[in-house]
Computed example of a mutant assay.
Amino acid sequence: MPQITPQTKGVFVIAATPFAPDGALDMASIDRMIDFYRDAGADGVTILGVMGEAPKLTPEESLSVIRATLTRAGNMPVIVGVSAPGLAAIRDLGLRAMDMGAAGVMVAPPGSLRTNEQIIGYYGHVVEALGPDVPLCLQDFPLVTGVTISPATLGAIFEAHPSVVMLKHEDWPGLSKITTLRKAEAAGRRRVSILCGNGGMFLPEEIRRGADGAMTGFAYPEMMVQVCRLSAAGDHDRAQDVFDAYLPLVRYEQQQGVGLAARKYTLARRGIIASDTQRKPGQALSSEAVAELDFLIRRQERRLAELG
């Protein structure tokens, strides 16, 4: 299994964890989902993130999801989210995931961190726990974690720990952060891969600022693949046209509280997973929300047909 590196580019789709209506893991849907992401052109997948409802899984279930995903993914790289309150849990799940063939692990900072020194020290402890040979993706998602990491603090972590090879960039607004990080690299700091989240809301701008691709769970990953490929070819106008066709649904998925429900509904509507079930606690869609999603998807399909 290839591992992530500072040169990793493309689309790593954040995968949902499929559940049956009774809340049990739906392993058949995992297989179907991974096949779909590969066919859609994804360069890799990321599991057990926020979208994957990781805190709702038992340790045994987490291992089952990792094993099933890696088996189905074959040579497609899989990043495993291993964020946890304690370093022992991060180390245990992270090393077991790597032993099974993961391409790397992703760790978000705990909400208790308040100062730059604490943040830098925390990632030093993470690298020490996992070992210097485990490729690490640092998840920078202050809207969820409550931890704001400045470009200078990120740079200090990157320089101190070569195993931190990737940044999952989800700051918002965060375009200037990408520019600052890339300017620092141009001035001599080592390169890291930057893949962006936030549902793909700012993907065209992020790529033009220097991001290497996307790492998010938008229910139409083919949009992210097309935008990244067209942008890499220099066709930014066409990339923007494609993005604009999907933007209303991207925006709808970004609602706090119901975003995951909307995303799972669309994945189930497309036949990628069998059920849009979330484990409790989870907010279900109202009939009005379902009607709104169906309306947006119909309009999206019509616009894509017009674009050819």
Rank of each mutant, 00 (worst) to 15 (best):
Q139I: 08
P135K: 12
S150H: 07
A102I: 09
L113A: 07
P151A: 05
M100T: 15
T153P: 03
M100Y: 15
V144K: 13
L154N: 01
V147G: 02
A129H: 05
V147R: 04
P142V: 10
Q118M: 11
G104L: 00
I119D: 02
P135G: 07
A129P: 07
V126A: 00
A108N: 00
H125S: 12
V147W: 02
V107I: 14
Q139K: 07
P151D: 09
Y122T: 06
V144Y: 10
A108S: 11
G124F: 04
V126F: 00
A129F: 03
M98E: 14
G111A: 07
D140S: 06
A102P: 06
P142A: 09
I119R: 00
N116S: 11
D99F: 05
F141M: 07
D133C: 15
D133H: 14
V127K: 02
M100R: 15
L130A: 03
V144P: 02
G104Y: 02
L136F: 02
T153A: 09
L113T: 04
V105K: 01
T148E: 10
T148P: 01
E128L: 11
G146C: 14
T115G: 06
G121R: 02
Y122P: 01
M98P: 03
F141T: 09
I149S: 00
A103K: 03
Y123C: 02
L136M: 11
P135Y: 10
C137W: 02
G111Y: 08
A152L: 15
G146Q: 12
Q118R: 04
Q118P: 02
D133Q: 10
G104K: 01
G146M: 10
M100Q: 14
A152D: 11
D99G: 14
P109V: 03
T115P: 06
V127E: 06
V147I: 11
A108G: 06
L130M: 14
H125N: 15
A152F: 09
R114D: 11
Y123L: 03
T153W: 01
G146D: 13
A102D: 06
P110N: 15
H125A: 12
P135E: 08
P142Y: 08
I149E: 03
A97H: 06
V144N: 10
A102S: 09
L138A: 00
A103D: 14
G111P: 05
T153D: 04
N116L: 04
S150N: 07
T148S: 10
V105T: 04
P132C: 10
V134Q: 02
I149D: 00
R114L: 13
S112M: 10
L113F: 05
A152H: 11
A97E: 13
D140C: 03
P109N: 09
Y123H: 02
P110C: 13
V105R: 01
H125C: 15
I149T: 14
F141A: 06
L113S: 09
C137M: 10
V127Q: 03
A103S: 08
G121F: 08
H125L: 15
R114A: 09
L143S: 12
Q139G: 15
M98S: 10
T145E: 12
